[in-house]
Design a protein around this nucleic acid. Structure first.
Length: 199
DNA sequence: CATGGGATTGACT
DNA sequence: GTCAATCCCATGC
């Protein structure tokens, strides 16, 4: 199986954030194309690694090509790919996927109680957010530190059919510091991104 | 040991 | 548009 090796991730995090667009995240029978990413680096204060190595951020300073999964708002697991050489704290947050396979498994893991199912189960709502896609794929904190090139959770290169998209870039979502950095990337016009592009 | 703040989401006004 | 849910962990006393 074709996977991205550690040297792919051991590069400047902004390059990896762009290059991960179009790559495929697989977990079990479920998979989707990455259509939205954000870059984080220890030198800017929005990055968890800004404070240095702690029990929470240890994974970020570890070898590139591992998963950094952490709990957000006490509820959601957010998936990142650790980047830059070992010792540098940096990662790419995977913010949205276009589902390819295992859509029924995704729907089974997404909430449907007490809500119109269409709201959470339509294709374009299954993985259109960093907390949604981990839920849809069944990724949990247990995957923190796992090798993204070997194991149940993998990232593989784009399929042959994937056409190089036009990329939009802009400010990252949901942060309060370093808000000015245009380190968010997404596929122009794609319906599966977490938010419409700001004008 | 107590506190406060999130790289979010979905329900509701 | 507003708001609660919920938990890990960094920080400060």
């Amino acid at each position: 199986m074709n996977v991205l090796a550690a040297d792919f991730y051991a590069r400047p995090v902004l390059e990896v954030a762009r290059d991960l667009i179009g790559c495929i995240v697989e977990h079990g029978s479920a998979a989707g194309v990455i259509v939205e990413t954000e870059a984080y680096h220890e030198r800017e204060p929005a990055c968890h690694a800004f404070i240095g190595p702690t029990s929470r951020t240890r994974t970020l300073f570890g070898p590139p090509g591992r998963a950094y999964v952490y709990r957000s708002y006490g509820i959601h697991a957010l998936l990142n790919a650790v980047c830059e050489p070992e010792g540098v704290g940096a990662a790419v947050l995977i913010r949205a996927l276009q589902p390819i396979t295992g859509l029924e498994a995704m729907r089974a893991r997404r909430p449907a109680v007490n809500s119109p199912v269409a709201r959470t189960h339509a294709d374009e709502h299954l993985c259109s957010g960093p907390g949604k896609l981990t839920q849809a794929l069944g990724v949990s904190l247990a995957e923190n530190g796992s090798d993204l090139s070997a194991g149940a959770l993998r990232i593989v290169p784009p399929s042959r059919a994937w056409q190089e998209p036009r990329l939009l870039e802009g400010p990252r979502i949901g942060i309060s510091r370093a808000v000015e950095l245009p380190w968010r990337f997404c596929v122009a016009g794609n319906r599966h991104v977490s938010r419409p592009w700001p004008r």
